[in-house]
Design a binder for these strands. Structure first.
Lengths: 120, 120
DNA sequence: TATTGTTATACTCTATAACTATA
DNA sequence: TATAGTTATAGAGTATAACAATA
């Protein structure tokens, strides 16, 4: 499933990890790098170049929270990208469900979300 | 889900990739490295050290098919390992289903298998 | 000429440790 | 003293290319 999604977002110029970061920033404006790292299980040391790359491409920008923390937000360009991203995700879900037993196509997503929520 | 399974099989001394290879060898005695690589999307060049490591630990052995091909089989030690492996997999499935909606715990596995079969 | 397996090696991803600056 | 972020770097995992031996 993730391999398919990875291929779909490749033309947008980002990886699955970067996609997750952007979604997290979109859903949590002013989030800090360290918080993203905790949620996505990415080490602080690896967040630095990751965020720098997203900033260099103009998708996010930083605002100082205090002297040592910086809050992240999507730029307008980042918001636009997120729309395209959601199209890819929707197509990916359709592709997944295409071969699921007919009875209730959305049951799978509901079940997976329930499991994910319980574990996280 | 895979992260949990990875932790469960770690005490057995193998990785998820090695687990997949062993299962494939168990289900297809006399299989060739190149065939495993095709199924699991592992490059030939990376199969060499992978198989060598499994052989060094006494879990598989090679039999010449012809001058350039070698068929793989589990050793008795490998068969024993596979039993322990299946216990881990069963525990992993139980762990996954524990937080699935009650209605039909096995529906998820059936659905995922149907999807997997259709894609592969 | 195509295939099986191997080696060498580069690239990416992730992990650890040490550092600066700030709370 | 603890935390946010950075840098340097080592270790996996995975990629390409070139090779030998055989079909």
């Amino acid at each position: 499933m993730l391999a398919d999604l990875g291929q779909r977002i490749e033309p947008l110029g980002l990886t699955l990890t970067e996609m997750s970061v952007l979604q997290l920033v979109a859903a949590n404006p002013q989030i800090r790098q360290s918080e993203i790292g905790q949620v996505l299980a990415i080490k602080r040391a690896n967040m630095a170049p990751l965020i720098a790359a997203l900033e260099a491409r103009g998708w996010i920008h930083r605002e100082a929270i205090d002297g040592r923390s910086q809050g992240l937000r999507l730029t307008p360009s980042g918001e636009t990208l997120l729309v395209d991203l959601k199209v890819c995700i929707t197509e990916n879900e359709r592709w997944i469900l295409r071969d699921a037993p007919k009875q209730d196509p959305s049951q799978l997503i509901k079940t997976l979300k329930a499991i994910w929520t319980a574990k996280a």
